[in-house]
Computed example of a mutant assay.
Amino acid sequence: MDRIEKAIDNLLIGSYGEINSRLQQVSCDIEIKGTNSKGYCYSLRVDANGELRLKDLVEFIDTKLVDYAIPKKDIDEARNYFNNTGSASKVLALKKRAKTLFTDLEKTGEGGETLLYILVLEYLKIPQLISKMTLKTSGQVHYQGADGIHVKFDNEKGKLNLFWGESKMYKKMSTAMDNCLSCVKDFSLDPQSAESVQQGDLELITSNLNANVKMTF
């Protein structure tokens, strides 16, 4: 258990809370009747001129592309190379590699998926388990499956908890929420079988775990 917990802790990428200068919490712990769910709402902050800090948020998301798209294992190797040689070549190579993984299609949800990753990491402190972007067959296609796969170890129960994320971006918040909750419902109630959505993602995790998580023995 100690090895698993240590490996998961190593997946966590810290910060100094820079996201808080772009977003502000509107409400938290909102109970959703008839469910075991809770809601947390955040909104864009405004600058000194009263303008929404949207461009600032987009630029911030751009700085997180490597963290989101590249396995933490590869990031650690590039950091070690920099520490040992003083050369940033492998770090820059990761940035170039990350950008090739994103589609340039006009309609894409990859920006929202990256923001989802940032929110889960920044506010819930739950690290990403699988960097699904590296599993795409082409940068010009979208990856099918959960928008985010995160993991946390429960010390008290000795269990590994998996978290699936869903990202939606619409002009109307109500439409986004309806579609998001509908997808979560379908995913949660999909009967367990070899063809279930859950089984596909679980196979994705087990087959790519070694490429994403560094285990020490």
Rank of each mutant, 00 (worst) to 15 (best):
Q199A: 14
N179H: 12
T137H: 07
T137A: 11
A98K: 09
Q198D: 10
K99I: 14
V120A: 05
K95T: 10
L124Y: 10
N155W: 01
T175D: 12
H150G: 04
V151N: 03
V151H: 04
S182D: 13
Q140M: 13
F163L: 04
T108F: 01
K125Y: 05
V197K: 15
E113N: 06
S182L: 09
G145M: 04
D154E: 05
Y117P: 01
P127C: 08
L124W: 07
I149D: 00
Q192A: 15
T103P: 09
Y123N: 12
Q199I: 12
F163M: 04
Q199D: 12
F102P: 13
S174M: 01
K136Y: 01
K157R: 09
M177C: 13
E195T: 15
I126G: 07
K132M: 01
D147H: 08
G165H: 01
G111N: 06
M173P: 01
C183T: 08
S196F: 11
T108S: 15
V120L: 00
R97S: 14
L160N: 08
G148R: 01
S193M: 12
L162N: 03
G148E: 00
T134I: 08
E106F: 11
V184H: 08
K99P: 02
T114P: 02
A98Q: 10
K107I: 13
A98M: 11
V197Q: 13
E195F: 13
E156W: 02
Q199K: 14
W164K: 00
L135S: 03
M133Q: 04
A98H: 13
G158V: 07
N179D: 15
Y123E: 11
G139D: 06
C180Y: 02
A98G: 10
Q128K: 13
K185F: 15
Y123H: 12
I130V: 11
Y123A: 07
Q140T: 09
K95I: 10
G109C: 09
T137C: 07
E113T: 02
I149F: 01
L121V: 07
S138H: 09
M177D: 09
L160G: 03
E122H: 07
D186Q: 15
M173D: 08
L105C: 09
M173W: 06
